[in-house]
Design a binder for these strands. Sequence first.
DNA 1: TAGATTGTTAATCGATTAACAATC
DNA 2: TAGATTGTTAATCGATTAACAATC
Lengths: 221, 221
Amino acid sequence: MAQQKKIPDIVIKRLPIYYRFLTNLHQMGISRVSSSDLGKKMGITSSQVRQDFFNFGSFGLQGYGYDVEQLRQEIGNILGLNKQRTMIIIGAGHLGQALARHSAFEKEGYSVVGVFDVNPHLVGTKIRDIDIQHVNKISQFCRENKVDIAVITVPRTYAKDVADLVISLGIRGIWNFTSVKLNVPEDVAVENIHLSDSLMTLGYYVKCLHEREEEQEEQEE
Amino acid sequence: MAQQKKIPDIVIKRLPIYYRFLTNLHQMGISRVSSSDLGKKMGITSSQVRQDFFNFGSFGLQGYGYDVEQLRQEIGNILGLNKQRTMIIIGAGHLGQALARHSAFEKEGYSVVGVFDVNPHLVGTKIRDIDIQHVNKISQFCRENKVDIAVITVPRTYAKDVADLVISLGIRGIWNFTSVKLNVPEDVAVENIHLSDSLMTLGYYVKCLHEREEEQEEQEE
DNA sequence: TAGATTGTTAATCGATTAACAATC
DNA sequence: TAGATTGTTAATCGATTAACAATC
């Protein structure tokens, strides 16, 4: 069943946030929520909550609201969390290792099945129970194992080559932690974590706040 | 000089991207660029490029375009990259340590000046040349040192308390790596890196691509 | 039933794109 | 000068918000 009219990316980006808040509610033992309660918690309008869900169907009950656990599962299914996904991490530097050890992803159905690097000091060692293999083993590994997602945590100069490689091996999802913009065919999905960009954005707002403070001090004189 | 009409957040989020592409151009020895060239590289329209810059003034030359290095510096100044910023990292787990060791931030003027944790096995050890101190030393540290940004990489249950603490100590910028939504006063800036959200979003698109592939296979039969 | 809240359409708002006069 | 490209206003597009009939 094909997606009819394309759902805006910005709506998709909000689904994990809904999922997160619904998980919280569920853990707090709350079994029922209205669009306006949920919106208030998340800092958006009730209209937006209902409008977002409307893209996928109708999950609520008029006059009642939403069943927390049911809605959570619906959104989980939309996101595909009901299916197990496998990831390989390419680049076992500080960040790559931290991600490999980050156990939280596993709970959501994402498991790291391989870690690769070029550094001979790392190749052969283990992260948790996974051997770090040399990058030149990636092709073989992907032939022998189903891999859904490649996590790219290599230095920026290698990012493009690594992306091209994993795409050629049939991987359709790339989680890109480098600052490089990856140009990929339309049948490949890329999600970027641009740490530096995020930090610079924060820096801008901090600067603005400092400037505002200085102004206020001047006015007080 | 106060910011006149507020510049949209979405424009601010693009500034680091411009900065990044301009740095690349500069490193490639390219000294001149037009809005349409820059837009093409970044995957946006030339109109948007000009419209974005128009928020801050006029940096170009009609009939010529922009001087790469000059534009880069202008954007750097807007972002406040000309000023040195200090950060403390709270939570020296895998992610916190990886960020502390991530040297790239330093180049952009952000330096880690303190790392804190509660784990007695970590307290007293070093990351690079920085001592890991116990979290109960944060107040004292902030009184004795100017700290611009707090990086929060603690488990989610402690996130709120840590945020409240650093805000009470006068820190105005929070880089939040936990999955918790931090409710902060309006004179505090928060930037979130929600790794799980990003991964789930990627998972959604991977799911869609898989479904599309299956459909195509069916049609071929 | 009366009250509440959804699903869904319509109105508004803001961001992107187009257009073009200004000018290098 | 002629050509190119900006700065800037106007038009379009898309996302958010408001409104309300449907209905639990």
